[in-house]
């Protein structure tokens, strides 16, 4: 494998592009230069840290450390889902709805892929487990936050319709069915789009990375297809679980619509 190793100088050249962009944004008073610089700095620090963590982890492939990193990734993703909600659930539910659904779908799909598809030895081998989990988690996180956001927005907007259906004797499931269906559809749009455009419009990042690092294209493509399917499954099942869970949580034991369980937007 003939990987061209990147020197800090090479990266600094790329960073100049970001600085130029920030400068232009400042000049044109677009106002996003601060956010741009902070997020660029954040991603550098985060990626360097994860690189060091992975280096350590690859050297000591103990299931406990792999599990610990997985839990940290899950918790961060759970927080991200929560803060992206315009109307999140009050109390611990705001965090729990997304986190539990991601746990169920992403972890199950990753473990399934490691055990049955890739068949690494040991199955928790961090070179496979962590990147795979990361990709599935990252995409599932997007699907779930879009789906939940749509559901709670829709429920708040259609409050009168939903309550009018309840008043006609529909049960909670039926009264919110339209909103739930729509929310799941919205949550799955990004991954469906990504799959349709893969290879024609966009070369997916994982595959590109592998090819840049010297893997034969056909091998890289096979992994990309695998990862794509795993991501779609993780996102789809995760969104369904999260939206279903949230749709239930919007009603109480007497099947009343309880929008007071959501924080008002901007609060």
């Amino acid at each position: 494998m003939n990987v061209v190793s990147l020197s800090p100088f090479d990266l600094a050249l790329a960073a100049l592009l970001i600085l130029a962009l920030a400068g232009l944004s400042w000049r044109l008073r677009i106002g996003s230069e601060r956010q741009l610089l902070i997020s660029a700095a954040r991603s550098t620090v985060q990626l360097v840290l994860i690189g060091l963590v992975l280096k350590l982890l690859f050297a000591n492939a103990h299931p406990l450390w792999v599990g610990l990193l997985a839990v940290v990734m899950l918790a961060v993703a759970g927080r991200e889902v929560m803060v992206r909600q315009k109307r999140r659930f009050v109390g611990g539910w705001g965090f729990a709805v997304g986190t539990l659904s991601m746990f169920v779908s992403s972890f199950a799909v990753t473990v399934l892929a490691l055990l049955l598809v890739i068949g690494t030895d040991p199955w928790y081998a961090p070179q496979y487990a962590i990147p795979l989990l990361g990709m599935i988690l990252g995409n599932t996180m997007n699907g779930i936050s879009l789906g939940l956001d749509r559901l709670t927005q829709d429920a708040a907007e259609k409050r009168q319709i939903i309550e009018s259906r309840l008043a006609l004797g529909h049960d909670a499931r039926r009264a919110i069915a339209d909103s739930r269906r729509e929310a799941i559809r919205v949550g799955m749009i990004p991954i469906v789009n990504a799959m349709s455009a893969a290879g024609i419009v966009s070369l997916p990042g994982m595959m590109t990375g592998q090819i840049l690092a010297g893997t034969p294209p056909v091998e890289a493509v096979k992994y990309q297809i695998l990862v794509m399917f795993l991501i779609a499954a993780g996102t789809g099942f995760g969104t369904m679980v999260a939206v279903g869970f949230a749709a239930r949580r919007l009603f109480d034991e007497r099947q009343r619509l309880r929008l007071d369980r959501l924080r008002p937007p901007g609060a």
Binding site: K158, Q160, I161, E163, S164, R165, L166, A167, L168, G169, H170, D171, D178, R254, Q255, R256
Partner: peptide
């Protein structure tokens, strides 16, 4: 059960809603 109650004791809201 709440849906059975609401079928027996039916509210007709001032503003009608259609889905």
């Amino acid at each position: 059960p709440a849906p059975a109650w609401r079928r027996s004791v039916a509210l007709v809201a001032a503003e009608s809603q259609w889905w």
